[in-house]
Amino acid sequence: MKPALPALPVSRDIDPVSLRLFLSALEEGSLARAAARENIVPSAVSKRMSEMEDVFGVPLLERGVKGVQPTPAGNALATHARRLLQDMDRMHREMAGFATGVRGHIRLAVSVAALSGELPAQIQSFRRAYPQIDISLEEDTTQAAFRSVLEGHADVAAGSDFGHDGLQVFPCGHCELAAVVPGQHLLADRETLDYAQLLPFEQIELNRDNGISSVFEQAAKEAGVMRRISARVSSHETICMLVARGMGVAVVPQYLKARLPHLDIRFVPLTGPWSSTPICIAVRDPEALPPAARALLAHLKVLPGA
């Protein structure tokens, strides 16, 4: 028989268990599924929700035959609950780090563009300077990396300086860009290219939101030309393979040239305002970062006065 949860005191204090159950109910859309997810009986979840509504004095959930959904007050509580639970998780992780001698853990989300410059060497330099701090690095698109920080799944993001509402950003270098065209393409012999010279040709790009594609969508709008996309694929390496097969042209980070010497393609440096994309470090609030993450930002020399 599953143990009963202790009753929620009718006071202004809401405990983390109740908040977690509340978020589970919202995410599952059902008290019964939330109970199964948390491995407790549904009646205990229902009781907790009713007690929270009594404490706050407002309905938090609309209950129906198809499940539950948040009221406006429930939506507001969900925002606070996620933040509180994330902060508590960060607190426990930091304290566990001190207990084991690790003394810190940084969750770092980065884009491909951010990894093309000096950032990997800077991260290795930080590891050597702070061997007691662990870094978990996950590569994704710029937008996904920024979302990870906004949603509390990462402490720090690095990506193209584009589309970062709700975050504080700090400049951290540039990603140099190149046009990539088939080896026999009529643009293959050019020493440099302006992005506008690619617009008459079909283009290949990533199938996920990313900073580079967003930059060139804006560039096409400014030129008054609609981009023609022949394919959307999962990686810059696949883009280059399709370019080699004549499916179109593309814009990719310049560093890929050294990785793909076997393909019959030509990397042509871009000129003008679209020749590189700025890279930035993004966080929600530098003052609220764990000490380990603040140490990383200081090491990267992105904080004012660092």
Results as ranks from 00 to 15, higher is better:
Val17Tyr: 02
Ser18Phe: 01
Leu21Asn: 01
Phe22Glu: 02
Leu23Arg: 04
Gly29Ile: 05
Ser30Thr: 04
Ser30Leu: 01
Ser30Pro: 04
Leu31Glu: 00
Ala34Asp: 00
Ala35Val: 00
Val41Arg: 05
Ser43Trp: 15
Ser43Phe: 09
Ala44Tyr: 03
Ala44Met: 02
Val45Pro: 02
Ser46Lys: 09
Ser50Trp: 10
Ser50Arg: 13
Glu51Asp: 13
Met52Thr: 04
Glu53Arg: 10
Asp54His: 10
Val55Glu: 12
Phe56Pro: 11
Pro59Arg: 07
Leu61Thr: 08
Arg63Ile: 12
Arg63Asn: 06
Gly64Met: 06
Gly64Val: 04
Val65His: 10
Lys66Leu: 07
Lys66Ala: 10
Gly67Val: 04
Gly67Arg: 06
Gly67Gln: 06
Gly67Asp: 03
Gly67Phe: 03
Val68Asp: 01
Gln69His: 15
Thr71Met: 13
Pro72Leu: 08
Pro72Arg: 07
Ala73Tyr: 09
Gly74Tyr: 06
Leu77Tyr: 06
Leu77Asn: 08
Thr79Ala: 12
Leu85His: 03
Leu85Cys: 04
Gln86Gly: 11
Asp87Ile: 08
Met88Phe: 13
Asp89Ala: 15
Glu94Lys: 15
Met95Gly: 13
Ala96Asp: 15
Ala96Ser: 12
Ala99Asp: 15
Ala99Phe: 12
Thr100Glu: 08
Thr100His: 06
Thr100Asn: 09
Gly101Glu: 03
Ile106Phe: 04
Ile106Tyr: 01
Leu108Asp: 00
Val112Ser: 12
Val112Trp: 13
Val112Cys: 13
Leu115Cys: 09
Ser116Ala: 09
Pro120Trp: 02
Gln122Leu: 14
Gln124Ile: 14
Gln124His: 14
Gln124Arg: 15
Ser125Lys: 07
Phe126Met: 07
Phe126Gln: 05
Arg127His: 07
Arg127Thr: 09
Arg128Gln: 14
Gln132Arg: 14
Ile133Thr: 05
Ile135Gly: 00
Ser136Met: 01
Ser136Leu: 00
Leu137His: 04
Glu138Asn: 00
Asp140Leu: 14
Asp140Thr: 12
Gln143Glu: 14
Phe146Gln: 09
Arg147Pro: 11
Arg147Thr: 13
Arg147Leu: 09
Ser148Arg: 09
Ser148Phe: 07
